[in-house]
Structures are given as C-alpha cells and as structure tokens.
Simulated assay, not measured.
Amino acid sequence: MISVLFVCLGNICRSPMAEAVLRHQLKERELEEKVSVDSAGTGDWHLGKPPHEGTRSLLDRYGISYEGMRARQVLINDYKAFDYIICMDSANERDVRKVFGSCSEQQTKVFKFMDLLPDKPGNDVPDPYYTGNFDEVYELVSEGCGKLLERIRREHQI
C-alpha cells in the first residue's frame, strides 16, 4: 500500500484538511484500498484533539468526513512508514527534516505541498489558524491533493 503523510504545525488545520480531502478523493476513485493517508504536526500543543472548528465546518460544508481524526506529532518512525511526506510550509519542512535527521537520505520523499502547485503564488500553504481563511486553504488543498493523486497514479501505475 502506498502511504501519504501530511504535516503542518499543530495538526489541527491544514494537514488534517489535506488528509480528509485526499481520503475523499481516493474514495471517489475507489482507490482507498491502495493508498493510506495520515497527518501529523511538528508541535505538541494539540495532541489528541480533533481538527480545528474552522476545518471541521469547511469539511462539513463539502460533505467530507474527518471522523476519528486526532492530532498527533510527527515521529522519526514516520520516515520509514510513509512513501510521501508533504509539509504545508517551509518551517514544517525544516522541522521534519530535523526530526528525521540522518535517516532522510532519500530527500525527495519529503517535500512542500506547494511543490504540487508550481503555478500558484507563494511557497507555503497559509495557516488558517492565524489568517482565519479556511476557504483559501481548502482551494489549495483540494487542487494540490488532485495533483498528488495524479502523481501517485503515474509513479505507481494505479
């Protein structure tokens, strides 16, 4: 099974939104048995908490499930457990690479979400915890997850 991990700061806004959206897209294409999806944060402030109310409200609006999702922190073991580790911003990527340290020889498995959207301005997915703009993040996440799914299908012939 191919595995994807989305990473943001607290694992309550951007990365759980991406996890839920990609799961939804996989289910629509009947690929949920071929690709697993998870999310984590670099910080430990929200461990065990459900996604942020803004994320939940937006996902509810689009009929996308976030059932059972709880914040967790990225772990060194995640490097071997996941094929794709996608960070929501530059600081998340830097922090993830610190966690993985010398085990991250294969640097291409860790990359920024906005690398999936090279035609969009900016290097980072804005954090709606601070901006309050969950709709902007959803638009980026929805399009980026579609691009990621295309990439996975191409790289793994599924």
Rank of each mutant, 00 (worst) to 15 (best):
Y129E: 10
D119P: 01
P126R: 02
R154E: 13
R153N: 00
R153P: 02
V141I: 15
E139K: 15
N133M: 11
C145S: 04
L117R: 03
Y129D: 09
P126L: 11
T131Y: 01
V125E: 02
K147R: 12
E136H: 13
P128Q: 06
P121K: 07
E155I: 00
C145D: 05
E150Y: 10
V125C: 01
D127E: 08
E150D: 15
L116T: 03
D127S: 11
P121S: 09
R153S: 13
G122A: 05
D127P: 05
D135M: 10
P126F: 08
T131C: 08
P128T: 07
K120G: 00
N123W: 01
G144D: 04
P118Q: 06
D127T: 09
Y129W: 14
K120F: 03
C145A: 01
V137M: 09
T131F: 02
E155L: 15
R154C: 01
L116E: 12
V137L: 05
P121Y: 00
V125N: 01
N123G: 09
D119R: 11
L140P: 08
K147E: 14
S142W: 13
N133E: 10
K147P: 04
K120P: 00
D135G: 09
C145M: 14
G122H: 04
E150C: 05
D135C: 00
Y130K: 10
E155R: 08
P121E: 06
V125A: 07
V125Q: 10
P121V: 12
L148D: 11
V137I: 12
L148N: 03
Y138I: 09
F134C: 04
N123T: 12
Y138K: 14
N133F: 13
F134A: 02
R151H: 04
G132M: 08
E155M: 12
S142P: 02
D135W: 08
P121R: 03
G146R: 05
P118R: 05
N123K: 07
V137P: 02
S142A: 06
R153C: 14
F134D: 07
N133T: 11
G132S: 04
L140I: 13
G144H: 14
V141N: 14
E143H: 04
L149G: 01
R154K: 15
G146N: 12
D119M: 04
D115S: 15
P126A: 05
L117Y: 03
E143K: 13
P118W: 01
D119G: 11
Y130M: 04
N123P: 00
D119E: 14
K147T: 06
Y130V: 02
L140T: 10
L117H: 03
P126W: 04
C145T: 07
D119I: 01
Y130G: 03
P118H: 01
V141E: 08
R154G: 00
V141W: 06
D135S: 12
Y129R: 07
D124F: 06
E139S: 15
E155S: 14
L148P: 06
N123S: 12
R153K: 15
E150P: 10
L149E: 11
D115A: 02
E143Q: 14
D127M: 08
R154T: 14
Y138N: 05
L148R: 05
L148S: 08
S142F: 09
L117Q: 03
G132W: 04
D115G: 00
P126E: 03
G144M: 14
Y138V: 09
R154N: 11
K120C: 00
